[in-house]
Amino acid sequence: MRIAFYGSSLLSSYWNGAATYYRGLISDLHRRGYRTTFYEPDAFDRQQHRDIAPPDWAEVRVYPATEAALREVVAEAAQADVVVKASGVGVFDTELLHGVMAAARPGAIRIFWDVDAPATLAEIGAAPDHPLRRALPGLDLVLTYGGGPPVVDAYEGFGARRCVPVYNALDPETHHPVPAEPRFAADLGFLGNRLPDREARVEEFFLRPAALLPDRRFLIGGNGWHDKPMPPNVRAIGHVYTREHNAFNTSPRAVLNIARDSMAAIGFSPATRVFEAAGAGACLITDAWIGLELFLKDGAEVLVARDGAEVAEHVAALTPERARAIGEAARARILAEHTYARRGAQVDALLREVAGRRRAGQAA
């Protein structure tokens, strides 16, 4: 099958947390015989911060953020067997949604792929005439990278024919153990961009423990933190390219996952960072959220904290031996149950099911 995929960026993770997710899924689907063209706008300086070259497992079309270019890439949806509009493209989102679904040929599978379901659902819940809400009944599938039963129920309540979570996962060829690097050395590392619905949780789960443990070293990577007041034992290093994530995860004694407010509230939403860290064999400390046990076991494969004081307790008590044991257990669990090969098989089965039903209906 040929897939036309309209998303934020495949080539750059700069202000684009979905990049790892897209890469893992699309590369696995390529191995299964799918041919994907990924359409991404030249916007937000992402093309100036690419962290992979154009891959051999997808054709990437970078288009100017203009109405003329939009018309061209929308028209190409007619050539595909599967048309995907992802959330959060950031440029012409509404026009892309209506345009590509209208351009899709009869018989094509139409999908909305939501990489931030809590935010999207909040938007359409507040606006009965929201463009996506109007489009849902005409789509074959809504796929989400997290959310579990609450997201499925909400989407189907808004009129989606079917909503299926396709969770983040690990690509073991990309994220794996590497030797530690001194520039990333710390007792606790955190990697994440500064976002309005994450900042208060970063203050609680990262900066508060740093203040409580002035003799320990804390490391924060990601965009936007350069002017954030921090304790003197916190070192901010700015954007960390995907190719550096393995070293970032293996060098500190532990790494921290902090869900955004909306993701924590809805649960069942493991970030890509969870799988990247586990794949590198890192000892992961995470804030608590519903559904975590589907992915990692508290106390054996991950350390769970309900506030900053508990993060500080974990950091203070963690020995190198225990950190290594937790990291190895997490890596074994994720490799066994949560790789992109498994997610690709899930998507492949869904697409074949929809296509099979369509053929059966035409035959009847």
Results as ranks from 00 to 15, higher is better:
5 F>L: 15
7 G>V: 01
13 S>T: 06
21 Y>M: 02
23 R>G: 02
29 L>A: 03
30 H>R: 08
36 T>Q: 03
42 D>Q: 09
46 R>T: 06
48 Q>A: 14
50 R>Y: 00
52 I>P: 00
55 P>I: 02
56 D>R: 13
57 W>V: 13
57 W>N: 15
59 E>Y: 05
60 V>D: 04
64 P>A: 11
64 P>D: 05
66 T>D: 05
70 L>D: 03
72 E>Y: 03
79 Q>K: 08
85 K>A: 15
86 A>E: 11
86 A>S: 13
90 G>C: 04
92 F>Y: 08
92 F>S: 02
92 F>P: 09
92 F>H: 15
93 D>P: 12
94 T>I: 09
97 L>V: 11
101 M>R: 00
102 A>K: 15
106 P>D: 15
112 F>S: 12
113 W>D: 10
113 W>N: 07
114 D>C: 14
117 A>S: 13
119 A>V: 13
120 T>E: 10
130 H>A: 15
135 A>L: 06
139 L>K: 06
140 D>A: 07
148 G>A: 00
152 V>I: 14
155 Y>K: 08
159 G>A: 04
164 V>C: 07
169 A>H: 01
170 L>P: 04
174 T>S: 12
174 T>I: 14
184 F>K: 10
191 L>T: 01
192 G>I: 05
195 L>H: 15
196 P>W: 07
196 P>T: 06
197 D>M: 06
203 E>D: 10
205 F>A: 04
205 F>K: 03
209 P>T: 09
210 A>V: 04
215 D>P: 07
216 R>A: 09
216 R>E: 11
217 R>P: 05
224 G>Q: 03
226 H>A: 14
228 K>H: 11
231 P>L: 12
234 V>I: 07
234 V>Y: 11
242 T>F: 09
246 N>W: 06
248 F>S: 01
248 F>M: 06
258 I>W: 01
260 R>E: 14
261 D>W: 11
262 S>W: 09
264 A>M: 12
267 G>L: 03
267 G>I: 10
269 S>H: 09
272 T>E: 10
278 A>Y: 02
283 C>F: 05
285 I>W: 00
286 T>S: 14
292 L>I: 13
295 F>R: 04
295 F>N: 07
300 A>Y: 04
302 V>K: 04
312 A>C: 10
313 E>R: 10
313 E>N: 07
318 L>T: 05
319 T>P: 04
320 P>Q: 14
323 A>N: 03
324 R>S: 13
326 I>F: 00
327 G>V: 01
328 E>W: 02
329 A>P: 04
330 A>Q: 05
334 I>C: 02
334 I>T: 14
334 I>Q: 02
336 A>G: 05
338 H>D: 02
340 Y>V: 12
355 A>W: 09
355 A>K: 14
357 R>M: 10
358 R>N: 07
363 A>M: 04
364 A>G: 08
